[in-house]
Design a protein around this nucleic acid. Structure first.
Lengths: 216, 216
DNA sequence: TGTGAAGTGTCAGTCGCTGTCACTAGCCTG
DNA sequence: CAGGCTAGTGACAGCGACTGACACTTCACA
């Protein structure tokens, strides 16, 4: 219990390095297979054969087949939350949310490149959007992220999330629009970060007009 | 090919009646088992044993185990869409969406009672909200419903959904708030229709204030 | 250097789900 | 109303995701 971490990120030891290598290999092999032949048409055995480990080992690293598809998404989400945390406290909620999303797209490359090339992530994201089983999980995960963000926003504004519904409602409305963005982007041919950044901006600009009582 | 329907909803024949009875029995048995012992802890074999049919038969009526949990939800969604269709064209988009949701809760009883008691549906809804696997599917289904509704709203306003993003954005924001409502309701002890109606109204009333640039 | 534990492979088994095939029972026509 | 047609079903075999148990290897640390 005492002396938890002698050297925070120093030499992790052979065991740790080996583990990390196995996990990375499984992750990469899985994503490549998913993208090449589809999520449903990839068996766990195919992935483990490519890495030459047993199926059992796969399930020791990932709770289930879906989880491996979201491993990178996890990083992207943390990156976004960090960006939101870094927004100046003076900004209003929507201003902060918007700034964080756009800023996160701009800096995604640096945040990701040492794990997986950004391009691979973008194709994984498209895969998620276009695979029903993955999309379902993605949406559920998104609601969990929304809750985290709602708490963050509440904190920024000095409010109690459970007493005041505005943080959750605002984040829900904002995230709903973000989902539409993701969907439209996935349908588009242009799978670049620049493209999704552009669409994010366009959709967010519509939120004001869309909420007007009368559109005519 | 000619003479499609002699009597629109008259005597459906023994075969049809038998089919319907089997389906209903499977549905009811499944929901009761799910509620009593949880979705994951109910095997398909348990359901089919209770109805005394083979497992194969279950999968002829329902594409998968999840689908049976959403059979009633299907009815509720149609009911909601119908309510939206019935709103006077003069109403603005948000007015119509809001009126349809609240109206649908008020008339849910009549729309459902001849298939399943409303109470059973409410408990099923709670089950969905509290079972990760079901919640994921529910959210994906919700996006499909959102698309239908966005098209409906666009039609009402005489717009092209693919040219003007406002319908999708408005529906996304609205639905995001509805999801928060559902989640809060599921956490509450009071599982009544009255309760969810009340929370719906409360959350929707917050959408205006929540979207203000500054909350202080 | 030896001992404990972490990481892995193997194997057997459960559960969701599918294809196939034979059989039975409603239906429809002559 | 007999006889064929076909929709609905059961039985069975098989695949793929996932889990528990146990034995074996290999690193870590005293």
């Amino acid at each position: 219990m005492t002396d938890e971490r002698p050297a925070p990120a120093a030499a992790p030891g052979l065991r740790e390095r080996k583990k990390r290598r196995t996990r990375d290999a499984l992750l990469r092999a899985a994503l490549l297979h998913f993208i090449a032949q589809g999520y449903e048409h990839t068996t766990v055995d195919e992935i483990t054969d490519a890495v030459d480990v047993s199926q059992r080992t796969f399930f020791r690293y990932f709770a289930n087949k879906e989880e491996v598809a979201f491993a990178v998404q996890d990083l992207v989400e943390s990156h976004y939350v960090a960006a939101l945390r870094a927004r100046p406290p003076a900004e209003g909620p929507f201003e902060a949310l918007r700034g964080a999303v756009l800023g996160a797209w701009d800096t995604l490359d640096e945040a990701l490149s040492d794990v997986v090339p950004v391009d691979l992530y973008m194709r994984t994201y498209q895969l998620i959007e276009s695979t029903p089983a993955l999309l379902a999980v993605h949406l559920r995960r998104s609601t969990e992220l929304e809750e985290r963000i709602a708490r963050l926003i509440a904190e920024r504004e000095g409010l109690d999330v459970d007493a005041d519904p505005r943080p959750r409602v605002a984040v829900a409305a904002f995230s709903g629009v973000m989902r539409v963005t993701g969907r439209l982007w996935a349908q588009d041919e242009d799978a670049s970060v620049a493209s999704i950044r552009r669409m994010t901006e366009a959709c967010l600009d519509q939120i004001g007009p869309a909420l007007a009582a009368d559109w005519r």
